[in-house]
Design a protein around this nucleic acid. Sequence first.
DNA 1: TAGTTGACGACGG
DNA 2: TCCGTCGCCAACT
Length: 106
Amino acid sequence: MRTSYFQSVYDVVSLIPYGRVTTYGAIADFLGLGSARMVGWALNQLPNHEIHIPAHRVVNRNGFLSGQLHFGTQNSMAQRLQSEGIPVIDNQIQEFNKYFWKPEVD
DNA sequence: TAGTTGACGACGG
DNA sequence: TCCGTCGCCAACT
């Protein structure tokens, strides 16, 4: 049953606008999980049929692509971000604060 | 049933 | 300022 917080995390991630990124902590705080690890765990368990979720837009608080290794190829995550206009250098998002998107009602 | 893991974050020394 | 440790809670073995 996907009534777990997993679905909530997926839903929030899906709300991340094109060309924007957010952090595990921001999602955790928004969902009231109280722990960023919950978000990381949810994405870690991200099933293939949910691959349409823009998980590449979720990075750690430092703007590093901590989950790049979980994508097919190491550069696929950075490549997608750059494709969206987000500068990524050395697996780190440049001007992270500029592209940061908080998962609020918006 | 209990222990370990995990794409993190905050705090203390 | 940098490094190390603890906490968070659910899922997996």
